[in-house]
Write a protein that binds this DNA or RNA. Structure first.
Lengths: 141, 141
DNA sequence: TATATTTTATAGCACAGGCTATAATAAGAA
DNA sequence: TTCTTATTATAGCCTGTGCTATAAAATATA
């Protein structure tokens, strides 16, 4: 049963979509992490963000600048980072999507540890339809 | 049932892994596409590669240069692009991983069309363990 | 309060992937 | 064979993400 081929345009569009999603993937990771740190420690500091992202501190500072530019976070010099309403909403969505993915992966037989890491990688590329199907799969089983 | 938190190091490692995988993701896409074109048309030409990737021709040329640099493909000026043994092996692996993913997604309730696009996005971030679990899920069901 | 330490910001560099414009070559037509 | 057309290569630019080294500000300590 060979899958029928997509048209060149469709195929190109798929790659384009994937590229665009990559652009927001990092922002989602930072937003999610800021929410996490705020929750755990009461505030999200640049140093902690950098440590948990596994990047150098200036890299985190630069990413935060971009978050601010895009209206997802705020911060004043030498103070912690805070999510805007929009950023918080994104964090909530990302968190729930992550939990859904981990749930399905574990149900399929992936260990919790691997599921967490895999979900981290793939979560940014999940379509609404796939997410809906995964939620249904979780609640139906 | 709150998931226990990963240590900062583990979490950072997860992000690092995701970043590294992103670096090979594009190469995988190109390799897969070259195999596809060779199969369909007998050869993979730069113009066709660019069209199907949805990028400008010089972008494809540059990507191909990188494939050559990494020993995945060969080409002579103004001729088609060919995979090396290593490149062909990668193409085969990527193809099978893609089919596995699409199979599982469809089994979970995602439409074929969405499954193809979603698989394209997430396939590069799938761990060996997740892939093995997906294969088992497919054959057990 | 003055000084030391920690934290954040800035400067400057590299690489990858995207683009447009243009040159060079190959392939097809006159 | 010569000329036109299609294809590929090259040049040069922008943006994003990463880095190290260093400056500046805030915090902690003497």
């Amino acid at each position: 049963m060979p899958e029928e081929k997509l048209s060149p345009e469709k195929q190109a569009e798929g790659f384009s979509i994937a590229r665009e999603k990559q652009a927001v993937a990092l922002m989602e990771d930072y937003v999610e992490l800021i929410a996490e740190l705020t929750d755990e420690l009461g505030e999200a500091r640049v140093a902690d963000i950098a440590e948990r992202m596994g990047v150098a501190q200036p890299t985190a500072t630069k990413a935060i600048a971009r978050l601010k530019r895009e209206g997802l976070a705020t911060s004043r010099p030498y103070r912690g980072v805070f999510l805007t309403a929009e950023g918080a909403q994104m964090a909530k969505f990302v968190y729930e999507r992550h939990r859904t993915l981990v749930g399905v992966l574990m149900k399929i037989g992936v260990s919790k540890e691997a599921a967490e890491i895999d979900a981290e990688g793939i979560e940014h590329f999940v379509s609404d339809e796939m997410l809906a199907a995964f939620k249904k799969f979780l609640s139906d089983t």
